[in-house]
């Protein structure tokens, strides 16, 4: 078991009034699993991610990583936000190495590993360029590399494809599944895109509107490797219908 979340609750105070964001979230993520969390916008997905990664502390409940309850989760969970956050003063390679550098990996070793990965990330030839010359998809791949190259085995992704155009997004989704299956990481992906959740995940977790709790867990039994054209398969459509029903059942 990689991650265990039990009875997680989180409130904010906004100008004196309590806003209940997370109400009793329970979640299990297994080693090497790809799990998507999907829910209406503003339901508290990002707050959940921030709690898991240790950026915020929950008001009550437990978060166990690898079976142990750790008070300080910062540094244990890899985190990839929607913005690529590449530093303009670093070259592409230096950006990709940032995480390893902070975690104290040897410089030579990291450079060697990065050099091997550049081609798989479609970045060879751009190592010593500044990020400003890269396309949106390439920038996002550098950001992935920065997160994936650390020794953190659990990685949370907060709508990483949200800012990309549809075509690039589909390319990146296929690319991410391939990379993930070869790297042995456990991934939690936050998204509001039902297709994306189904294409990438082993399981999809649907949250209710705020205050968020788990409404439905769907096992995606689709064969791998997944390809974008699968969105028209009957099995895919059946799953999609299930998810959309769960997502929109509160609406009149």
């Amino acid at each position: 078991m990689k991650l265990q979340v039990r009875n997680l609750e989180k409130c904010f105070t906004d100008k004196g009034t309590y806003v209940n964001v997370l109400a009793d979230i329970n979640l299990d993520v297994y080693d090497g699993e790809f799990v998507s969390v999907i829910g209406p916008s503003g339901c508290g997905k990002t707050t959940l991610l921030n709690c898991i990664s240790g950026l915020e502390e929950p008001d009550s409940g437990l978060i166990n990583i690898e079976g142990e309850e750790s008070q300080s989760r910062l540094g244990r969970v890899g985190y990839m936000p929607q913005k690529d956050l590449l530093f303009p003063w670093r070259t592409v390679l230096e950006n990709a190495l940032l995480g390893m550098e902070i975690r104290g990996h040897s410089r030579i070793e990291s450079r060697k590993r990065a050099g091997e990965l550049m081609e798989r990330f479609g970045l060879d030839g751009f190592e010593y360029k500044t990020p400003s010359v890269l396309s949106g998809g390439m920038r996002q791949r550098v950001a992935f590399m920065r997160t994936l190259m650390t020794d953190q085995e659990l990685i949370v992704l907060d709508e990483p494809f949200g800012a990309l155009d549809a075509f690039t997004r589909h390319q990146m989704q296929e690319w991410l599944v391939d990379i993930w299956s070869s790297m042995g990481k456990t991934i939690i992906l936050i998204t509001h895109d039902v297709d994306e959740a189904l294409l990438l995940s082993d399981r999809v977790i649907v949250l209710t509107a705020r205050p968020a709790s788990v409404k439905l867990v769907v096992n995606v039994g689709l064969p791998r490797p997944r390809r974008y054209r699968m969105v028209t398969d009957t099995a895919f459509i059946a799953l999609k219908e299930q998810l959309i029903r769960a997502l929109w059942s509160d609406e009149v």
Binding site: G54, L55, Y79, L85, F87, I102, T150
Partner: peptide, 23 residues
């Protein structure tokens, strides 16, 4: 400093003494 960039550094486990020179 972009608060998301700051958060990213923190999730790498960066200390203040790493965040200052690098960000």
């Amino acid at each position: 400093v972009d608060s998301d960039a700051m958060n990213m550094m923190r999730t790498f486990g960066a200390s203040r003494w790493q965040i200052f020179p690098k960000l």
